[in-house]
């Protein structure tokens, strides 16, 4: 089995930036992605805070970054990582379809998943569709009444988008009753870190984030963390990308 210098878990902005820095430093790099590259950003159709590329779509941006990483020599494989084990000379990474990989160092860049609606609210929603992506599903409810659950920035964003399509957009808290005449429920009640596969190998805080400072070092030597799944204040495309660079260079230092 081929052993990689660096295996990166997650092909979002953080993971792919780490891959670019890793291969440019002469290391062999494999990126493992559970679904499709991009992560959260593929739901965004109008990015205005990625310098140098005004109003780029998430899909366009991630396709370019993926192509860049591959052209430089990074490998990408589609594997849902379930477990990471420390061995005496490195790490073994296991996928949910019996895949197995070996690495000298690991960068965790799994990002976050949308927080799901509570069971109680799901019951309240009944047969009405529940969506976690207004830009995907909003247009299915043209001229209809919908409700957005949540009050944060992303909820505001969803409301603004849906107002352009739907006849009425209600907004409620995550513990309120869903209006009877709402035909679909859009959920934006925050996100939770996708750190399940790493919980046995690194320290994770009470909210599920992998504990690390700006140097991206986790509690396990040889394992680094980049992007939204790290404990930090500002979770943005550019800070995820920045983490990717730092984590990769720290991995390179570790491998030296």
């Amino acid at each position: 089995m081929k052993e990689y210098d660096i295996v990166i878990v997650g092909a979002g902005i953080a993971g792919l930036t780490a891959a670019i820095y890793g291969v440019r430093a002469g290391k062999t790099v494999l990126v493992l992605e559970a679904q499709v590259e991009g992560g959260q950003i593929i739901n965004t159709i109008n990015i205005e805070n990625w310098p140098g590329n005004m109003r780029v779509t998430g899909v366009e941006l991630i396709r370019k970054i993926k192509a860049q990483a591959e052209e430089l020599g990074a490998e990408i494989d589609y594997v849902n990582v379930e477990k990471i084990v420390k061995t005496k000379d490195g790490f073994e990474i296991f996928g949910d379809m019996d895949e197995k990989f070996k690495a000298k160092s690991v960068i965790l860049a799994m990002g976050t998943d949308p927080r799901k609606l509570s069971d109680e609210m799901m019951k309240d929603a009944g047969k009405r569709p529940v969506s976690y992506c207004a830009t995907c599903d909003g247009a299915l409810y043209k001229g209809k009444k919908v409700v957005v659950v949540g009050h944060g920035n992303s909820a505001e964003h969803e409301i603004k988008y849906l107002k352009g399509i739907c006849s009425e957009v209600y907004n409620i808290h995550h513990d309120e009753k869903i209006p009877e005449d709402a035909e679909a429920v859009f959920v934006a009640i925050g996100r939770i870190p996708a750190t399940e596969c790493a919980k046995e190998i690194v320290e994770i805080d009470a909210r599920g984030y992998i504990v690390a400072g700006e140097d991206c070092h986790t509690s396990c030597t040889g394992v680094f963390v980049a992007g939204d799944c790290r404990t930090k204040d500002l979770r943005q495309l550019v800070t995820a990308s920045s983490d990717g660079a730092v984590a990769a260079m720290e991995a390179v230092k570790y491998l030296a």
């Binding site: 679904q35 499709v36 589609y78 379809m97 569709p129 992506c133 299915l140």
Partner: peptide, 27 residues
């Protein structure tokens, strides 16, 4: 269809399963 992307498998014209969301080829 209430959420996309939505994949529906038909057997003899009848729906046998469906899945919403992205997935890689193997899946």
């Amino acid at each position: 269809v209430s959420s996309i992307p939505c994949l529906v498998v038909l057997k003899d014209g009848e729906e046998v399963k469906r899945e919403v969301g992205v997935m890689p080829l193997k899946k």
